[in-house]
Simulated assay, not measured.
Amino acid sequence: METKIYIQNLKCGGCANTITKNISAIENISNVTVNVEESSVTFHYETEGNLAEVKDKLHSLGYPEDGEANSFGSKAKSYVSCAIGKMS
């Protein structure tokens, strides 16, 4: 199955690199595409459990799903993830 998730705090290519690397590492997740302009992540997954795992990973990286609470902690995590992605 394929889905698109709209996320918060996505700012640049560094963020996109971090998201792509971390989401692609999850088992049964493939074809990860990050669109910075529309703040979305598109990917293929096999089970609802995989989808939940991706959402949890995005949240832990500082990119909660659009509509979720966007705490100061999430924003701070996204800046760190962004910097790491720029160095990769």
Results as ranks from 00 to 15, higher is better:
Glu46His: 02
Ala83Asn: 11
Tyr79Cys: 06
Ser78His: 03
Asn70Ser: 02
Ser74Cys: 12
Thr33Asp: 14
Ser74Ile: 00
Cys12Lys: 01
Ile7Trp: 02
Thr33Cys: 11
Cys12Asn: 14
Glu65Cys: 04
Tyr6Lys: 14
Gly14Met: 08
Ser60Arg: 10
Lys4Thr: 15
Glu65Asp: 05
Phe72Asp: 07
Val80Asp: 03
Asn31Gly: 07
Asn22Trp: 00
Pro64Tyr: 06
Ala52His: 08
Ser81Tyr: 09
Glu37His: 06
Val36Asn: 03
Thr20Phe: 03
Thr42Ser: 15
Lys86Asn: 13
Leu58Arg: 13
Met1Asp: 06
Thr20Cys: 02
Thr42Phe: 05
Gly62Trp: 03
Thr33Asn: 12
Ile84Lys: 13
Glu27His: 09
Thr47Asn: 01
Val54Ala: 05
Glu37Arg: 06
Asp66Val: 03
Glu38Asp: 13
Gly13Phe: 06
Met1Cys: 08
Ala52Met: 02
Asn31Asp: 15
Ala16His: 13
Val34Asn: 00
Asp56Lys: 15
Asn17Phe: 04
Lys11Leu: 10
Leu61Asp: 05
Val32Pro: 02
Thr42Ala: 15
Val80Thr: 10
Phe72His: 00
Glu65Pro: 05
Phe72Pro: 00
Glu46Lys: 15
Lys21Pro: 07
Gly14Phe: 08
Glu37Ala: 14
Ile7Gly: 00
Ser74Asn: 12
